[in-house]
Simulated assay, not measured.
Amino acid sequence: MSNKPDLNQADWVKSSYSGGNGGQCVEYSKTFVHSGTVPVRDSKHPQSSVLIFSVSEWSSFVSAVKRGEFST
């Protein structure tokens, strides 16, 4: 049995940090949080690979972004 979620059921949300200029666009799905995972994909290439993070990993990443740890 696979632990990979059925991404056909995913409701995707574009990150508010992606902006509207067609640049670095990330989408994530809250659909599977109850099972402990957060799928993440490139919104410019939605049919390409999806990264699967644990809820803890995703929360740590989002917190780091909010603190500006990845600013350019």
Rank of each mutant, 00 (worst) to 15 (best):
F32L: 06
K66W: 06
P5T: 00
K66L: 09
I52W: 03
V65A: 06
S56G: 06
W58S: 03
Q9W: 02
Q24S: 15
M1Q: 12
D42K: 04
Q9F: 01
P39G: 12
S63A: 15
V38I: 11
H34A: 14
N3Y: 08
E27G: 03
Y28A: 10
K66V: 11
S60G: 09
S43Y: 00
S54P: 00
Q24A: 15
R41P: 02
F70V: 10
G20H: 06
S60Q: 15
E27V: 00
W12M: 11
W58E: 02
T72I: 09
D11G: 10
D6E: 08
K4A: 14
E57K: 05
E69W: 03
V33E: 11
T31M: 01
A64K: 09
S63H: 10
G68F: 07
M1R: 13
F32Y: 05
S15A: 05
V50S: 08
G36P: 00
G23E: 07
S16D: 09
L7I: 02
S60P: 02
E27C: 03
E69M: 12
V26W: 06
S71E: 11
S54H: 05
S71H: 12
K14V: 10
S49I: 07
Q24L: 15
S15P: 10
W58V: 07
K4C: 12
P39A: 15
P39S: 12
F70T: 07
S35I: 10
T31S: 02
F61P: 01
S16W: 02
W58T: 07
G19N: 02
E57A: 15
G68S: 06
G20K: 02
A10T: 01
S63T: 14
K44T: 10
V40D: 04
E69H: 04
S60L: 13
